[in-house]
């Protein structure tokens, strides 16, 4: 193990050239919060490291109806961004719970997605918001919806010569309702046991703070653009499609909340691991989705 090769890409093009040259031998290094742990633990001896931290992929752009974030943008930048705070508050909320401050300073949104952990923290808000990722290679670019990006634990549709250069996030309507929560084993610096987000556009019903009470039949007359997302409960971060479909076009009442939560839990396929049992993950999925919906209507 003499240490392999290190390349500092000064532009995206240079990075793509290196990936084209070395293919599967190359490991893309951004913040290193995943790769360097594996190196230290002797689980990985990369032949080629391609460092993309200073190649122009650190940006957040406001394009009106969407926000695009460069693949090598650290989470701390996303957290600081006024654009994200104003237009993507769900993402801002979720990013607060990623890692710890030092990890967020270097850990990048692209790295988090490409690593493809079933527990990837950024996947939950991004799937809820219907984000896509742009993959670039020497031979061109393609945009893949995030839902189609993950294939399994540690596996994505990214080809060895491709680089995740951008995350594209549609800006939801201003009156969209959402909630996010991460269950970890402690309050910080922990992989999620289950994390979830619910988002939908509500029509009818009373605005916040008025007297539409819990005992009234209906909180909102119609939900649309609904998504229920969970992570760490399936081989990939999960969009609970059936639960989302139940919400879509429906009037939201206590009965539907219970039904959506139960359905979301049924869509999970969790496993036992060091953090929690499959039993708990399924139970907690139901409780989590229920409490997210209740928080929205409260």
């Amino acid at each position: 193990m003499s240490g392999g090769e290190f390349y500092r890409a000064s532009s995206v093009q240079e990075a793509l050239d290196l990936l084209a040259k070395y293919g599967a031998k190359a490991h893309v290094l951004a913040g290193g919060t995943d790769i360097m742990v594996k190196v230290n633990r002797r689980q990985l001896a990369p032949e080629v490291l391609v460092y993309i931290g200073e190649c122009g992929l650190n940006y957040i752009k406001d394009l009106g109806d969407k926000v695009v974030i460069g693949g090598a943008t650290p989470f701390a930048e996303i957290l600081r961004s006024d654009v994200v705070k104003q237009k993507l508050p769900l993402l801002a909320e979720a990013v607060k719970h990623i890692g710890t401050p030092a990890i967020r300073n270097v850990g990048t949104i692209g790295g988090n997605l490409v690593t493809a952990s079933p527990a990837a923290d950024s996947s939950v808000p991004l799937l809820a918001l219907g984000a896509s990722v742009k993959l670039a290679s020497k031979s061109g670019e393609r945009v893949v919806p995030l839902e189609a990006f993950f294939k399994g634990p540690g596996e994505t549709v990214r080809k060895p010569d491709e680089l995740l250069v951008e995350v594209i996030i549609p800006v939801p309507d201003k009156d969209v309702k959402f909630a996010y929560h991460k269950i970890g084993r402690r309050k910080a610096g922990t992989l999620s046991v289950v994390a979830g987000a619910v988002i939908f556009k509500a029509e009818g019903g009373a605005p916040r703070g008025t007297a539409i009470a819990r005992d009234q039949a209906c909180y909102f007359e119609k939900c649309s653009q609904a998504r229920v997302v969970l992570n760490a409960v399936a081989p990939t971060p999960l969009v609970a499609k059936k639960a989302s479909a139940l919400l879509e076009g429906s009037a939201l009442d206590a009965e539907l909340i219970a039904k959506v939560a139960k359905t979301a839990a049924e869509e999970t396929s969790p496993i036992d691991d060091v953090r929690a049992s499959a039993w708990y993950r399924r139970q907690a999925s139901e409780g989590l989705v229920k409490s997210l919906l209740e928080r929205i209507v409260a």
Binding site: T33, M36, V37
Partner: peptide
């Protein structure tokens, strides 16, 4: 990168030196 005993600042930003690739 879990314990923080190696924390230093790089260009003013807090990082964990143990998982910071030196060449970066």
């Amino acid at each position: 990168g879990d314990c923080g005993a190696c924390s230093v600042l790089v260009n003013g930003k807090l990082v964990k030196a143990c998982i910071t690739n030196a060449l970066t």
